[in-house]
C-alpha cells in the first residue's frame, strides 16, 4: 500500500514556528500520536484532536482523505 494523504490543521500556539494547514503524505496506519510526534510537537501541548470534525483520541488511526485538526488547550465564552 502506498502512502495516504491527510490534511493537517494547526491552531493557536501550535502554529508558532510551524504552519496553519498542510497536506501530508503519511504511511498507512499512522496514528494521531505518531503524527504529532512526527511534527515535533510535545504531546502535552495538544489537548484537542478533531478528525473530520469529531473528537478523537491519540490512538485514532488516520485514513486517506481525513482532516486532522490539532488544538492546544483553549477556552472562552
Amino acid at each position: 500500500m502506498g502512502p495516504i494523504s491527510v490534511k493537517v490543521k494547526l491552531f493557536a500556539s501550535l502554529r508558532t514556528g510551524r504552519f496553519e494547514e498542510r497536506d501530508m503524505e503519511l504511511a498507512p496506519g499512522t496514528s494521531v500520536r505518531a503524527l504529532v510526534h512526527a511534527l515535533g510537537i510535545p504531546g502535552q501541548e495538544v489537548t484537542l484532536i478533531l478528525v473530520n470534525r469529531r473528537h478523537r483520541d491519540w490512538d485514532h488511526v488516520l485514513a486517506h482523505g481525513e482532516t486532522c485538526a490539532l488544538f492546544p488547550p483553549v477556552g472562552g465564552g
Binding site: 491552531f11 484537542l48 483553549v74 477556552g75
Partner: peptide, 13 residues
C-alpha cells in the same frame, strides 16, 4: 490561551 487570543480563539474550534 485567553491572554494570547481572547475568547475569539473559539471561532476555529
Amino acid at each position: 490561551a485567553l491572554p494570547a487570543y481572547g475568547t475569539n480563539v473559539l471561532t476555529n474550534i
